[in-house]
Design a protein around this nucleic acid. Structure first.
Lengths: 201, 201, 201, 201
DNA sequence: TATGAATGAGATTTCATTCAT
DNA sequence: AATGAATGAAATCTCATTCAT
């Protein structure tokens, strides 16, 4: 490893702590993932945690930042493909549906974040902003998708998007290891039905 | 309050503890709902809790029992109506969709139970049985529904049912107070699309 | 089992509780042997315990009574033989030494009782009486023994007796299962040395 | 008090906790000596206890370490004197016998440790090692003693040593405050008898 | 910045004891 | 006399957080 200057070293500590936190929280849940567990898993002391975050909940907001970036990136990548011809669009969607929830930990983390938002007003404030943006972005995708297919969305595109986020997260909970494929299958079934049933534009 | 004999009094204590546990767990999550909180809310000592349940996790299994009974009851009531003519069936479904998730706590509890099952093997054992039965029962409903409407289910009825359970639970997480109606609306949108898109039998 | 009248039934309950208490206390120690454990082992409820004893410590005093009777009986049986000729006396002693500590639980119980007496003044009061009598009785045995062998005791017979009680209890602690014979061997070694070294009367 | 650096301060905390534990355990017994009692007596929080020991039983093993060191030191000091002429050897022994059990707490602690070893397999493992070493060391002392006096030990020296350890511990239990001298007296009586009765080498 | 001993509050659980039945 | 649900206190242990180094 190359020598890191002070700033880089500090950033690396923070990154390692965040990654460790993500794994611990997915594994045990936020309440059960102790600061000691997280710090140990990252290879630091508990004090290092508090040098980087004001309190335990703060690291959740960092996770939200990351989660947001990653989900947005996935969506953008599909959005790019969604401007082409119908066949390509559908192929892209199927691929997305298959992979979107391929990491169950990712969805479990989303659920942990949502539960926390449901219960901690301070956390909710920062968190809800994410969901609004996220839903709106997915809503745009839905709109473009129906446009590309020459159909009319059967309901508010943002609501449809919300439905698919909910479906994905609900499936993540129901699925155990090895059943991940079922999640993608169901998402595709529902999506195709919506498209087939939609009136032409 | 009428005088209770010993057996009744004991049953009442257990019932009160279970109800209190349900509320506390919905409000705070299983990990944060302490035995003291639950016992206090029920108006008993912590010791009373341990006179009725071997440990904290045991009360979750009781909640699963209740949850199961209640969900099954709702499903049965719709199943009864689903044997009639198409118009009645659809009306029944819309009513069910509107009310099924009208109690967000109900779904949040379901999520807490699922998270616990994901993390506690001992709990998972008892819990997974419920989900299997539940999914199968809903699968039967889906089958009858499509039959009554003269359509072919576009996928395994149990998978479709699983999708709707997942959707309901995911929506419960996304919904804050006052947004409950949206959940029903989305469920109906998805359901109608599935029916419309389905080929005739 | 023949029908018991009320008095007999009550006495039987008490006996069963005392026996169960003895086993539990030997196995776990007084502090770790809970009233529930004892009552369960005897096949009764906790309430039955409190119908028969005013509190947990009270059953210890009952055990002392029994312990006293049993130890005295053993001593008396050797005392009887000790009035004969030297050879018989020595043979009796060896037999006693071999059997006296053959039940390690018996000595462990004695130790539990003594520790309790060391720490609970109320218990000590009832308990110390036993030890005084016990030591005096053994002192008489020592006196008779040396008389029968035509020797002078090399110290106060009561102190010599005390030494052997201490030795027996100390050995019970040091011995694990299967090493019981060693205890008897050491007792005999010490006893023979005392006799050999004693001046003729 | 002089300023302590971090390491010294930490070591001091541990030492204070161990000393407090020793006193509390002697006073109340291991089961009754709560972690709170021990921490309070040492002037720390309960958490400090768990920063220094993984669990309550662990401090018993520390006490064994100390007990071992101290007993060995006493034995070594007598071993040194035992190489001289017979008169000096006997004088040293009498002094040792008088002081060896002058601290009844010391023996009571030994008994608590042994009871624990009898009941906790995990503790027994670490503990039995001590006793083996201890008995062997005392066995060497007995051998040298008889050599110095020109006599043959009347039995396996390790067994004789074991007998004296047992005698000392048994006496500690029987003795109340103020009766300590009796313990030494009896030990000397037994020891002299063994020596007198032993055949010349 | 990072350490980790120490804190104080609170977690689950056990238990001697009481009491209505 | 016997039951066993319920109590209230106390047990062991965990944990987010602080702070001197």
């Amino acid at each position: 490893m190359p020598r890191l200057n002070r700033e880089e070293s500090q950033a690396r500590t923070k990154t390692l702590l965040i990654e460790a936190a993500r794994e611990e929280i997915i594994k045990k849940g936020f309440a059960q993932a102790s600061v000691r567990d997280i710090a140990d898993a990252a290879g630091f002391s508990q004090g290092a945690f508090y040098s980087n975050f004001p309190d335990k909940e703060a690291i959740l907001l960092e996770l939200v930042q990351q989660h947001q970036s990653e989900e947005r990136a996935k969506i953008e990548s599909v959005l790019g493909q969604a401007s082409g011809e119908p066949a390509k669009v559908m192929a892209g969607l199927e691929k997305w549906a298959a992979t979107a929830n391929s990491d169950p930990g990712f969805a479990v983390l989303a659920i942990e974040l949502q539960l926390q938002a449901l219960r901690s007003p301070t956390f909710a404030q920062g968190y809800n902003e994410l969901n609004r943006k996220h839903r709106r972005a997915l809503g745009v995708l839905v709109t473009r998708l129906f446009e590309a297919l020459g159909k009319q969305p059967p309901a508010d595109p943002v609501e449809i998007a919300t439905g698919f986020i909910a479906l994905g997260r609900g499936m993540a909970l129901l699925s155990r290891a090895g059943e991940v494929s079922r999640s993608g299958r169901i998402v595709v079934t529902f999506l195709k039905a919506l498209i087939d049933a939609a009136p032409s534009a």
